[in-house]
Computed example of a mutant assay.
Amino acid sequence: MKTTENFTDKADIYAKYRPHYPIEYINYLFSANQLKEDQLVADIGSGTGIFSRQLLERGLKVIGVEPNDDMRNLAEISLKQYSRFTSIKATAENTTLKGENVDLVTVAQAFHWFDKEAFKIECQRILKQKANVALVWNSRDLTSLIMKENAEICQKTCPNFKGFSGGMVESPEIFNNFFKNGKYEFKMYQNDLLFDYEGFLGRNLSASYAPKKNDEEYERFVFLLSELFEKHSKNGKIVLQNITRSYLGTV
């Protein structure tokens, strides 16, 4: 299966249970890039529009580039009230956007799916001179006991599990190769997530590797997650330690 199809049939659950990004990060993005209302952002791998919405709420023009039909269609419905939003069916490596026209490229929770070199060349083509690329992830804090046990469940029941965020390790080499002269600014924000049982289960089921209802391991996956929730929850709520990681620079 092509990576562009990883989230087919998961758009609804993805949109409902995936977290937003901290306001501190959005403020940083604006100040670091000197963004002003009506400037143009290309949100690549925009999915169901979670990050696009946060940019639109601050008055930016946003082009959402998303190859997956289910994800893109949901974004178009949920963001239809924003006249500044444009939706395009295209890939990160071939966005079809006009050259030297974009004030900022953003990639939220998607860079690990891209062909890094081809995407870099495409960014160089569509960005205005000296404009930046912003990569951001909401990442599980793997030092947390809950997250370690959550990963063990995924290893047991999810054949396609290679680690969270597609198994991408936070290797400096990846970012050194992507950003121009290996120079970028790294920021980190604590962004812990509070879920009830439904939210906790939904967050896990929204992952690309998670089994779907018809899959053999689905019931076992849900059962083990239920046990994990019961073990660590208090008053019907569980806290998942989450870190927002940001990489910003020119390419």
Rank of each mutant, 00 (worst) to 15 (best):
K89I: 09
N33F: 05
N33L: 05
Q129D: 12
S171V: 00
I146Y: 14
K213W: 00
E152A: 15
K130W: 00
A11N: 02
T91K: 10
N160Q: 12
G64D: 11
P159C: 07
S52Q: 06
D70R: 04
Y21M: 06
N176H: 13
I88N: 05
L201E: 13
M188R: 13
R18N: 01
Q54L: 14
C123D: 01
V222W: 08
F7H: 03
N27I: 01
R220W: 00
V105Y: 01
T157C: 14
Y197P: 00
K16R: 14
F30V: 11
K234H: 13
T157Q: 05
P172G: 06
K36I: 08
S208V: 09
F175D: 04
G49F: 09
D196Y: 06
K98H: 02
W113G: 08
E5Q: 15
G182H: 09
N176S: 12
L135S: 05
Q241S: 14
V222F: 08
P22H: 08
C158Q: 08
G166I: 08
L228G: 01
A75T: 04
Y218L: 05
A108Q: 03
E198F: 03
N191H: 15
T157Y: 13
K89N: 14
L205N: 04
D196R: 03
Y218A: 02
Q81Y: 01
E122Q: 07
K128V: 03
I174T: 15
N94C: 08
A15I: 00
S246E: 12
A118M: 10
Q129L: 12
N138G: 03
Q155A: 12
A42W: 01
I63R: 03
E76A: 11
K120P: 00
C123G: 04
V62K: 07
N150C: 08
V105N: 01
I88L: 15
V62A: 07
F195L: 12
T157G: 05
